[in-house]
Design a protein around this nucleic acid. Sequence first.
DNA 1: GTCTATATACTGATAGAC
DNA 2: GTCTATCAGTATATAGAC
Lengths: 213, 213
Amino acid sequence: MSSEKSPLSPRIDKTGNIDILIAAAECFMEQGYHATSIDDVARRLGATKGRIYHYYRSKTELFFDVHREGMRRNFEAVTPVMKGPEPAARRLNAMFRQHALSMMENLALEAVVVQGVEMHRFGATTPEQRRTLAELMTVRNDFESLFKRVAYEGVEDGSIRTSDVSVAVKVALGAINWLSIWYRPRPAETRDDREILADKIVDSIMQGLNAPD
Amino acid sequence: MSSEKSPLSPRIDKTGNIDILIAAAECFMEQGYHATSIDDVARRLGATKGRIYHYYRSKTELFFDVHREGMRRNFEAVTPVMKGPEPAARRLNAMFRQHALSMMENLALEAVVVQGVEMHRFGATTPEQRRTLAELMTVRNDFESLFKRVAYEGVEDGSIRTSDVSVAVKVALGAINWLSIWYRPRPAETRDDREILADKIVDSIMQGLNAPD
DNA sequence: GTCTATATACTGATAGAC
DNA sequence: GTCTATCAGTATATAGAC
């Protein structure tokens, strides 16, 4: 059905497709995109292929929609804290923190987003799929630009020091995205635990490892 | 024939298998493990499957060997600079720098190593493959431990400041490993260019983004 | 809207010629 | 040591019953 205006508009939920997205995200996270069959996703849903192909014309489109939902949540987490009267360094700090928390709390979706980055490697796809892929990469770049913009503000207001804003942002986001590789929630984990971890990560990013002289 | 003693011993080269490893690494980097067929690898070699299956019993073993070679080069790059009379912070600095350069100069191999991390998801494998996979993960952990050890030394000699050594090292290595996602060498790139980039990355990791008061 | 076939294509791995 | 031919297994996607 997907009438898709903006890549950020919530196009799901009402039809109950969110179940399919979550099931797909979990399968993709655990086994990777190519190793996951539509049957796997259906099995996790407690259904059969028929249901999935009723909503999605292809496995690729399903992947794309998971990716979209993951990015939507990324923006949702970060944009509320990026503006304000504080020095840019403090706002950037908050953005990293929010992004890290979003990674932890939407682990499956975000793991797929991370996979998606390495998936300009979609080899042979239809022209339409190519366009969608380009669109997703644009959204990713826009997300990165959010951080760059605030980082530049910080260079100007003197709250941020770096030899290269673009590299510094890539380093910071890489560190956070890497969570999708090593972070797995412990059985009785609370929101507090995640916030403590997020703070440690952001502290590493903002303060670095060198002891002050 | 792979007689394999240590995961780090150079078991290749002489038979010319290194060609197969490189071709496989490039395919895996561009399309991912599952999307790459043995025919793809053979085509890149300018040969057919027969040649590959003469040296490797399965696609999985081929992947494992690429991973091994990538990790071997990682150790090779980092271990020479990890000991010495300097404060631990300086040695850690050098280790990160070497690792970043190794990522850039062995891009295909290292991209496969990065994929390998997310590949405890090998689903159904033979017991032997499970053992190999566990071995590879051990090697990865040992590599990370190299950095942790020096970071702890830094905490003790006062040259390093962090709220959590383990997290800080994961953050730093994540940032560097993320290179495999976004770094692609420009056409006329020189060693100097790579060193400049590596220095910027290491600067970000060690100094952080906050301006000194 | 969901399920059960089924068509079609591809891929990992093997056997045997050269 | 490399190639050709081929088998068996599996996956995407479709068609049609319910």
